[in-house]
């Protein structure tokens, strides 16, 4: 039942990827202007509060991963795309944000809306 030392080191080398091998279409594409949703679940989320309602641009699509908000609560993987989204510090922090500072934050499909 318990893993041996050899199995433990094998698991370190193999890793434990959160990627899901599922054919899920992305909801956004690189270059899209998006808004971080103002979501406040009482349960687990990887949406940082400071981004609520902020607009950014999709810089990169990392592919399909498990969704932590459901995965943490035994509600399945809900596989979806994860993107690197670029936010301007001015948009996030207002006057306190640096003119030439940017935040790049990984966002799941369900954290974003398209800005039309």
């Amino acid at each position: 039942m318990a893993i041996t030392a050899e199995q433990a080191l094998g698991a370190v080398a193999a890793g434990a990827s959160a990627r899901v091998d599922a054919d899920v279409a992305p909801l956004f594409k690189v270059g899209d202007r998006v808004r971080a949703r103002n979501i406040n679940p009482r349960s687990h989320t990887r949406m940082p509060r400071y981004l609520h309602g902020c607009e950014g641009v999709v810089e990169r699509d990392f592919g399909v991963f498990a969704f932590p908000d459901s995965h943490a609560h035994e509600q399945g993987d809900q596989p979806q795309h994860v993107y690197s989204v670029r936010f301007s510090a001015k948009d996030v922090w207002g006057r306190e944000g640096g003119e030439r500072d940017f935040l790049l934050v990984d966002m799941w499909d369900q954290y974003l809306d398209i800005v039309s």
Binding site: M1, A2, I3, Q7, A8, A11, V12, A16, A18, S43, H44, A66, P68, H71, A72, H73, E74
Partner: peptide, 20 residues
């Protein structure tokens, strides 16, 4: 961390949520 994780009682997101 890894040996207990390997027992399969919880996943990484449940682990993070337990800390939260």
């Amino acid at each position: 961390f890894l040996p207990v994780f390997a027992c399969g009682y919880y996943n990484i997101d449940q682990f993070r949520h337990a800390i939260e």
